[in-house]
């Protein structure tokens, strides 16, 4: 079963939840799709890591063949091409690799070229297979890396946790596309609720079964909890705000592997999630 873990913004505990749930299983796969800032591997410290580069296709021009007809410039709806001073200029970071300009160039002046945008790393950490996507700084879109990570998933009954990019934009959509269930992680602030509502809208849009884990819970009012009650969103569990967890987290240690209490907490959460997915 594929379980996507989402949050409205960074720092709400999305990685904490996905890493510890994965660690609480017998065996599982943890996939870090937060390609702009992957950090799950910092906790897992995977071994036997194999790396693969991810490239996209972008056009390159043979200036000897180009006659300046501009058919390609007019065609590109992403405006990745400009014709200035008698030369075609290609904006690699704007190009969406649709390949259209290459097809339409009457002079065959354009050809495909590989451009590496990032990499995928695969390793293991005890019971967990850890797959990480890493987008090179300055690249516009991590979607090709996420596609690669998700296409590489082998079918099987085991648990697969997808640590999604924060927010609700197309990169998050890509990450939940194939998920069987979505866990939304929320923190108890009003600002958090606003962002949370956006990912909530996203999972509803995709019609995904979902539930919420309330993180950083303290005594007293919890705006995120009130929001869930009001909207009738299933609350899967609560993670208390305490120093011990904070310390483990800041030392990049996996709470489930260090402390019995957290092992129980996340095992119970895993049990609830499993039942929800099988509903």
């Amino acid at each position: 079963m594929k379980i996507a873990v989402l949050s409205g913004k960074g720092g709400t505990g999305k990685t904490l939840v996905s890493v510890n749930l994965a660690a609480a299983t017998q065996t599982s796969v943890y996939i870090d799709c937060d390609v702009e800032e992957p950090n799950g591997y910092l906790f897992f410290r995977p071994e036997g890591v194999e790396e693969e580069e991810i490239a996209i296709k972008i056009p390159s021009v043979d200036e000897q063949l180009c006659n300046g007809c501009r058919i390609c410039v007019d065609f590109c709806k992403f405006n990745a091409l400009a014709y200035i001073n008698g030369k075609l200029k290609i904006f690699n970071e704007v190009c969406h690799s649709c390949g259209g300009c290459i097809l339409f160039c009457p002079e065959k002046a354009l050809s495909e070229q590989d451009k590496v945008i990032g990499r995928v790393q695969k390793g293991t950490s005890e019971n967990v297979t850890v797959n990480t996507g890493i987008l090179n700084i300055g690249e516009a879109s991590g979607i090709p890396i996420i596609k690669k990570l998700l296409n590489d998933i082998l079918p099987g009954p085991e648990f697969i946790f997808i640590d999604c990019p924060p927010g609700s934009a197309c990169i998050a959509m890509e990450s939940i596309r194939d998920a069987d269930y979505c866990i939304l992680v929320a923190e108890p602030t009003l600002f958090g609720v606003h962002n949370f509502n956006m990912v909530y809208e996203l999972v509803k849009l995709f019609d995904k079964p979902h539930g919420v884990v309330l993180n950083k819970c303290l005594e007293g009012k919890n705006p995120a909890e009130e929001f869930c009650l009001e909207k009738g969103i299933r609350i899967l569990g609560r993670i208390p705000f305490d120093n011990e967890l904070g310390l483990l987290n800041s030392n990049a240690q996996i709470a489930v592997r260090e402390n019995e209490n957290y092992k129980m907490l996340f095992s119970a959460l895993l049990q609830i999630v499993t039942e929800e997915v099988q509903k």
């Binding site: 410039v73 992403f78 405006n79 990745a80 091409l81 400009a82 014709y83 904006f91």
Partner: peptide, 18 residues
């Protein structure tokens, strides 16, 4: 025409004024 384009509006507007 760039005003309504999906992306790269600056590039297209620049091409227009060039």
């Amino acid at each position: 025409k760039a005003a309504v384009s999906q992306g790269g509006a600056g590039i297209k507007a620049a091409q227009t004024v060039v």
